[in-house]
Amino acid sequence: MIYTVTLNPSLDYIVSVEHFKLGLTNRTGFEQILPGGKGINVSIVLKNLGIASTALGFTAGFTGDEIIRELENTGISQEFIRLEEGISRINVKLRSIDGTEINGRGPEIKKERLKELTDRLCRLQRGDVLFLSGSIPVSVPENIYSTIMQQLKDKGVMIVVDATKDLLMNVLPYHPFLIKPNNHELGEIFGVELKTRQEVVPYGKKLQELGAENVLISMAGEGAVLITKHGAVYKKEAPEGKLVNGVGAGDSMVAGFMAGWLEKQDYEYAFHMGMAAGSASAFSENLATKAEIQAVYEQVTRINLQEQTGGIL
């Protein structure tokens, strides 16, 4: 079974406002409300690819009810723990001003409720896959991901971590199967600026030296880099396409990579599937469909063939 954990899910209120002006009343030209959170995004993309998963985490209040309703309408299995107080957060994402968003705090998660989740995860078995994705509420200890991995270290669970800073660094001693920093997050860890695919390679290898098995580095328009546990390095430029919505592109890349890996256990295929899923979501209004991912995958593999033949097909 595949499980995704989203400790701080949200309702994402996505709006577009032409000619936005501070201090004045602005009206939306486009608006959309979707369940959000990195683990939820992974579950949605996996579902679009025909792969079942169970979404875990916490919900609260009327917003939590809507998150669950939306997931169930999408056909995604969920076992969220319901909190009695607070509300799941609302994130406002202003699509017309790239990268501008206001994210809510989320409800307080008490120790006994957090233990309910960790106890649930302890029931995972050899061969299961677990995604630990995204930020955590302020009420949750910063070592929560490493605590979960410590509890599962001898169970043979394949664990994927998509997180930043200490959340990521704390899990490395427990040897996650895959981590996915972007180039900015990787540079922040080591106090450097990383702009090219070649520049990220030595720093990705440093994360391997600290314990990660495979390191997938997303770089938006610059493409992506994969460093495998066997030392192979795959580098690929980004497919051509128009950026429509960058929200969830990184989560889609993680989902696509693992979908490819679970299908063939082939790193190159998984890398191309990851790039295709991430780019397809970036080129789409919503998280990418299977057809959209397949179309970009064909472009990615065509680029790969051109590189192998020196541009002659």
Rank of each mutant, 00 (worst) to 15 (best):
T4E: 01
T4G: 03
T4M: 01
I14W: 08
V15A: 05
V17N: 04
E18F: 12
F20I: 08
K21Y: 01
L22D: 02
K47S: 12
K47Q: 12
G50S: 06
G61R: 01
R69W: 03
N73L: 13
Q78I: 03
E79C: 14
I87Y: 12
I90V: 12
K93M: 01
L94R: 09
I102E: 05
I102T: 00
N103E: 11
R105D: 15
I109W: 07
L117D: 04
D119C: 15
R123T: 14
G127V: 00
D128L: 08
V138F: 04
S139W: 15
V140W: 12
E142V: 02
N143F: 04
T147L: 13
T147N: 11
M149G: 14
Q151N: 03
K153L: 03
V157E: 07
M158I: 06
V160F: 10
D162G: 02
A163T: 00
A163W: 11
T164I: 15
P173L: 06
F177N: 13
I179V: 02
N182F: 08
N183Y: 13
I189K: 05
E193W: 02
L194V: 01
T196S: 06
T196A: 04
R197Q: 10
V200F: 09
Y203M: 03
G204A: 05
G204Y: 07
K206R: 07
Q208F: 09
Q208M: 02
A212Q: 03
A224C: 15
V225I: 04
T228V: 10
A232F: 15
Y234K: 09
K242D: 04
K242I: 14
V244G: 09
G256N: 13
K264Y: 05
E268R: 11
Y269C: 05
M273G: 01
G274A: 02
M275T: 13
G278K: 10
S281N: 06
E285I: 03
E285L: 12
N286C: 02
Y297R: 02
E307Y: 08
Q308S: 13
T309D: 09
